[in-house]
Design a protein around this nucleic acid. Sequence first.
DNA 1: AGATTGACGCGAA
DNA 2: CTTCGCGCCAATC
Length: 109
Amino acid sequence: MGFNDRVYEIVRQIPEGKVASYGQIAYMTGSWRASRAVGYALHNSPHHAKLPCHRVVFKDGRLTTGFAFGGKDVQRDMLEAEGVVFTADGRVDMIKCCWSTQEAPGAGD
DNA sequence: AGATTGACGCGAA
DNA sequence: CTTCGCGCCAATC
């Protein structure tokens, strides 16, 4: 399970207050198209308890509906508690919360 | 080995 | 803006 393990390692690196899209993770695994495989991996996550899978959302910033943690509302609450910003659309503010592998260059201006 | 599915992503209508 | 369809990858039957 190289791919699967790879996904876990990446998701684990997601800091609080930030979110990553399946496509983003898929890209890091080496398979930029394996967005579906990423979700599949998380679904099978053997250590999902320690994986911030709730920080993994759609490209649109939308959350997974009905499959996770008990509901997207719960996931949203978790993300907000982490510091993730949400828009009036009920979606994650990917503009500010899109996770990047690169550390903040200005360290917060 | 072939067919099917699934926490996706994007283009087109 | 919403809905439909196709492609992608990996895992499972």
